[in-house]
Design a binder for these strands. Sequence first.
DNA 1: TCCATGTCATATCTTTTTTATATGAATCAT
DNA 2: ATGATTCATATAAAAAAGATATGACATGGA
Lengths: 301, 301
Amino acid sequence: MELRHLRYFKVVAEEGHITRAAERLSIQQPPLSLQIKALETELKVKLFHRRSRGVELTDAGAAFYADVCGLLAGLEEAVSKTKRVARGEQGNIAIGFTSSVIFHAATKKAIRSYRTAFPEIALSLEEDGSTELINNIAHNKLDAAFVRSNTSYVEGVRIHQMLEEPMHLAVPADHPLSIGSSKPIELAALSDQPLILYRRSSGPGLYDRIIAAYASAGLTPQIVQEAPRVGSALNLVAAGLGVSFVPQSLGAAHSEGVVYRPVECDPPLLAPIMLACRKSESSEAVKSFIRTARTAMGSRS
Amino acid sequence: MELRHLRYFKVVAEEGHITRAAERLSIQQPPLSLQIKALETELKVKLFHRRSRGVELTDAGAAFYADVCGLLAGLEEAVSKTKRVARGEQGNIAIGFTSSVIFHAATKKAIRSYRTAFPEIALSLEEDGSTELINNIAHNKLDAAFVRSNTSYVEGVRIHQMLEEPMHLAVPADHPLSIGSSKPIELAALSDQPLILYRRSSGPGLYDRIIAAYASAGLTPQIVQEAPRVGSALNLVAAGLGVSFVPQSLGAAHSEGVVYRPVECDPPLLAPIMLACRKSESSEAVKSFIRTARTAMGSRS
DNA sequence: TCCATGTCATATCTTTTTTATATGAATCAT
DNA sequence: ATGATTCATATAAAAAAGATATGACATGGA
């Protein structure tokens, strides 16, 4: 059976008349009769009563007609949907982010402007560590991810830097360093402070930058604890276990028992936000997401 | 576009490999490549990325694949449904009845046994006067109808008698004739009783039989009122406006203020139940309904 | 780096299928 | 009865699908 049979059948059913249907289909009557007969033979079902003044659907033919209309309409719908997806107007994409980037206004702005610009594309969001996110992109489980590292190079994944923000020092509210919180703190003042960092394995980016900053100031950090993610590091700070460095944007989120102070340091201690994506991305939807994000976040690279 | 394209596309999408897909389809690789390309050209959408180790769906291709699977499954479903309808196992039929026949146990039994025997066939039931029902059959708005007349002959409609039941006299409860209700009443005793009948135009069957019975007894009925249907005639009887004749089975339904008495009369005054249907019925579902009804109602004609 | 291998694309020929033309058979209306 | 209408059948022409042979291109191993 071919679509031709269904299309011909539909017109014949609507006209109740093979000759007129043939006209509407711009073919001659004999081939149309043959195609209808072939359809009946294949189904082993009589679809029309041959009357002297035309043809009339049998019960079975009427049932088939209803379904055929639906199928043909469904096909048209599928085709136009496919075209929309090809143009990048419809589809769905999966975006990942590390726990610390959602706090930054720019990532929220990026996602919001994409939703507005492409409302027909469903976004699914997933949180995980930088390493896992980048691996998921390589394995086609994610289309792009906001991360804080550019250190892990995975085959087929490219990482764009979107912006950098200063790192702030997070200190317990009752800690001596929390006094005069508006003035920057020099790194040297922290040499003997117990330091809380995040697990390097899931996000080496910030970890390495902090270690590097200590090193270039000629200091050795006293790491007392590794937290699985920034949020938990801040909880440990609030509990008084030590101090930590977090991206400035985190300050807005977690304030209970924690005081944030700018850090004086050369080169400045910065936390980047990067967008990881495939080196050769084929999906229009994903490409437009990357474009939107770069515009919204003011990335010029 | 033809179903072939969709079927081929589906297999290629599943295999991710044109050569293997061609094997599964029992054709050679070059024609399959051509058909896929033709499909892409017609849709003006690239459905596959050509990779060195095979092919891979594009976003648009993946969207199309999902829809194509649904459509092909839908087609199979439509075909098997059509076959079921052709075998008379599925479908829907429209049955009419006059207001007076549903009170008879035999019609309820007929409908019930049909529902049991063919649960997949939807029955739609409609009540109207005999004349209207029979016209509706001729105009294909109904498939069959239980009526009480065989007097109206409409082109293309055949009427089978299913059974006959005696007519009873309905008298007001406070009427002298209601005394001794178990004994039959002779027609002669009614010569000067005001008579209520139903409108002849919508159901000439019973009307004519009653008039004929009076005539053969040498009496002239004193018709005081015509009711639109049996139910309303009984209401008029209950109100004391006169007496009426109704099929025995009606006694079960309407008893408030009405007493029913058998009628002594030669030839006996009988109310038939007929089944009207098309002279040449083509639907298996309707044919099986007629068969079931005749069996359930004990018609031997 | 080069070659063997695997994979899709292209070219050409064969076969099948679809369509067109001509005509027949059946039914209905005048 | 006859002419018109409509579907069916027969046969010829055109189009399309499929087969075979081969090319182009990338990949992975020696």
